[in-house]
């Protein structure tokens, strides 16, 4: 399989008054053509910043301080703005979390879709309009002509998110970064949207990074999963492997907090403690203070290792698995 995206050693830091926030601090992963990869982690773990780094949308006081982002073989970390602008919305699209906030309230839907095409292709407005209409049809929007003429506030949240998804697919990108696109929607709509997105990736061969804090969402959607904690990937592997047999204590914890059919009746497991303060991470393993499987070794920083066809950042993978079962 050809690799669409290869991220290695990515570090994106924010230089604030209060100190340096290492929002992304050494992230490696790859995404292949047509693959959906889930990027999972608690709030503040650096998922969105990873996505924005790929698009080159990190604003001061933040910047990519280290690492490489290869897109179709081309290095795009800290690439020229011109080049990035060319890729954004064209080869790499992004869908944001809150559909109520992402569409511009004073511009009609057609304006906002057509401009996404015209920014990258010298086609006529008419052609662009037709393509927008067809794209809306593809994500299951009834009477797309009418919707095109609407202002965002005339559409429901689910409808707006479909518009955003349709827009993301407009230029047939190689990669779509979907940043928690269903978190703000209610459960039935969420399922529909996930379904539409999955269908479209299959159809177009677009690769996708699906960011979420909800393991249940990616379980049925992604092929591979990367779990992030405090700016680093702690576990990465095939979705079934990871879900059936999590090796990292944090993943175990995340899974424990998801109610699933086969563990019905069991007490939901919660990860203890607070999400870490990104300005003052503990020495050694960042998950240490909240970890059940902690040993003396954990006073050092675990590095990422390949075990059983997956990547793991933990000194005591076995103990972790035992702790829950």
């Amino acid at each position: 399989m050809s690799r669409v995206l290869e991220v290695s050693g990515l570090k994106t830091h924010f230089f604030t008054h209060a100190g340096v926030v290492k929002a992304v601090d050494g992230v490696d992963f790859t995404v292949s053509k047509g693959e959906i990869m889930g990027l999972v982690g608690e709030s503040g773990s650096g998922k969105s910043i990873t996505g924005f780094s790929i698009l080159g949308l990190i604003d001061p006081p933040g910047r990519i301080v280290e690492g490489s982002i290869r897109f179709n073989g081309e290095e795009i970390a800290n690439a020229k703005e011109e080049r990035l602008q060319n890729l954004r919305g064209n080869r790499i699209s992004m869908i944001f979390q809150d559909p109520m906030m992402t569409l511009n309230p004073v511009l009609r839907v057609d304006t906002q879709m057509i401009e996404a095409i015209l920014a990258h292709e010298p086609v006529s407005k008419q052609t662009a309009w037709e393509r927008s209409r067809d794209a809306l049809g593809l994500v299951g929007i009834p009477s797309p002509e009418e919707r095109l003429r609407a202002y965002p506030h005339q559409l429901s949240g689910g409808m707006r998110q479909r518009v955003a998804i349709a827009t993301a697919f407009l230029n047939k990108p190689d990669l779509i970064i979907a940043d928690e696109p269903t978190t703000a929607l209610d459960v039935t709509i969420q399922a529909q949207i996930i379904h539409e997105a999955q269908k479209l990736t299959k159809k177009t061969g677009t690769a996708m990074i699906w960011i979420t804090h909800d393991l249940a969402v990616v379980a049925g959607l992604a092929e591979r999963i990367s779990v992030m904690y405090a700016g680093r990937i702690v576990e990465q592997g095939g979705i079934d492997d990871v879900i059936d047999r999590p090796l990292h204590p944090y993943t175990v914890g995340l899974l424990g907090s998801v109610p699933t059919a086969n563990r019905r009746g069991q007490r939901l497991f919660q990860i203890e403690g607070m999400t870490p303060n990104m300005l003052a991470l503990p020495e050694g393993c960042a998950f240490g203070p909240r970890c059940h499987a902690r040993t003396d070794a954990c006073g050092l920083q675990p590095s990422i290792e390949d075990i059983d066809g997956r990547s793991l950042r933990c000194f005591n993978p076995q103990r972790a698995a035992e702790a829950v079962t």
Partner: peptide
């Protein structure tokens, strides 16, 4: 705001983002 970041994520030129997306609001 998100809509400006989103407009940037669509690859729009800065001119258009400022003159259309920001100014119109």
């Amino acid at each position: 705001l998100d809509y400006v970041k989103y407009a940037r994520a669509k690859g729009l030129p800065m001119r258009r983002i400022i003159l259309v997306h920001v100014m119109k609001n």
